[in-house]
Write a protein that binds this DNA or RNA. Sequence first.
DNA 1: CAGTCATATTGACAGACGTCGATGCCGGTG
DNA 2: CACCGGCATCGACGTCTGTCAATATGACTG
Lengths: 120, 120
Amino acid sequence: MSASGLACCTPLTGTAMSARQAEQVAPLLKALADPVRLRLVSLIAASAGGEACVCDLNDAFELTQATISHHLKVLYSAGLLDRDKRGVWVYYAVRPAALAAVATLFDTPPRFDTAAPNPA
Amino acid sequence: MSASGLACCTPLTGTAMSARQAEQVAPLLKALADPVRLRLVSLIAASAGGEACVCDLNDAFELTQATISHHLKVLYSAGLLDRDKRGVWVYYAVRPAALAAVATLFDTPPRFDTAAPNPA
DNA sequence: CAGTCATATTGACAGACGTCGATGCCGGTG
DNA sequence: CACCGGCATCGACGTCTGTCAATATGACTG
């Protein structure tokens, strides 16, 4: 399971992305590319303190506790969430850096349209 | 196959996302959540005129023509690409609006941290 | 019109994924 | 210490996905 390097990446739109970069970022997108996980991240991010208890997350879905736990593991393994066990409860928090890494993908770089003539 | 509504969406980080929203955006992310497709979009976006001929895209990968065609179809079906046939060749172009729709997911809204006390 | 080239489609297959019920683990409580 | 409750893990399942070889389609060429 990855979770460290955090996939710094150039925007999609600028210059062509390397195979290596693509393989680093794709897992992050894959982790987010599920309606349930999207809502989980959103719920956690919107919670007070930027973290949420698994018990509350379970109640927000009509899914088995096992399934929610699985989705949280996917997000955690991708490096998108932090995990903190406090007594009996477990709290997950969004890792802003991870989200930011993905966000850079969609940054629109200065638009040089069609093979821009050097504006010197 | 979708390709129209284009999934307008509130940022992940602001208020909790609805199930409906999540189900609209997830397919876009799913379409992008593959290294090959990520590179395809990147290659197309980085090409002169913001479009690229399939023949060139085929050459950029060590994959079968059928596989590239499949990936392009996935991206096209998700509404991320436009398709334009000119004679024997087919050109794909990135739909900036679609990319922008996904980008809004990662916009960081004004940070109200933990249940902000109204600063009145 | 027969041939060739660029894409798309089909069918097959192995592997990954989302979901569940059942079970295990561990921290509190009586 | 025995028990209960929150969460993770396991095993199984049907489905979806990425890839390929083969074939179809459709546009130009001689």
